[in-house]
């Protein structure tokens, strides 16, 4: 048992010392995501939010370290284009759903439920904030790429 533990640690150290392939990176990323998920669920059960926060920070640092070790290309122009399109669609769906929900909550909340009306206001301000961030970033990238 002890031999297995030592052998696993040596293997892990060996992997971390040299450059790694994309497949290895994906396996390790999966392990880190599992570790963070377990830590967060544990921290919720134990009511200890420092544990969740520290595990997320540790996970980000380890991921950044591993990314630097990968010799293959992780993100290329196609991946960036896909991420951009996904982000735009996410923005459109999120703002539409949030805007509609806040309108409905405010409308029905005025008929008696103060809590629902307040929630509607919070959601509408959140929608406005998301639109504001989008407009600022849109202006920034427009200027960067020639406007």
């Amino acid at each position: 048992m002890t031999y297995c533990k030592v052998s696993f640690t040596i293997d892990l150290l060996f992997i971390l010392r040299r450059s790694m392939k994309l497949k290895t990176y994906k396996y390790l990323k999966l392990l880190i995501v599992a570790f963070i998920s377990i830590s967060i669920s544990l921290s919720i059960n134990l009511n200890n939010f420092i544990l969740a926060f520290s595990s997320i920070i540790l996970g980000i640092f380890i991921l950044k370290f591993l990314q630097a070790k990968v010799k293959d290309i992780l993100i290329d122009e196609r991946a960036k284009m896909i991420a951009g399109q996904a982000a735009v669609n996410t923005y459109m769906i999120t703002t539409s759903v949030l805007g509609f929900t806040s309108f409905v909550l405010m409308f029905f909340g005025r008929r008696g439920s103060y809590f629902l009306e307040s929630l509607g206001y919070v959601l509408s301000y959140l929608t406005i904030f998301i639109i504001f961030v989008y407009v600022v970033l849109f202006k920034y990238f427009s200027k960067k790429y020639g406007d």
Binding site: D72, I73, D76, E77, R78, A79
Partner: peptide, 20 residues
């Protein structure tokens, strides 16, 4: 080819299939 042009194999596949 992906290594030579510093891109991913998935991108080369997508270009070959005329999807990208």
């Amino acid at each position: 080819l992906a290594l030579k042009v510093k891109t991913t194999r998935q991108t080369i596949i997508a270009i070959e299939k005329e999807k990208y």
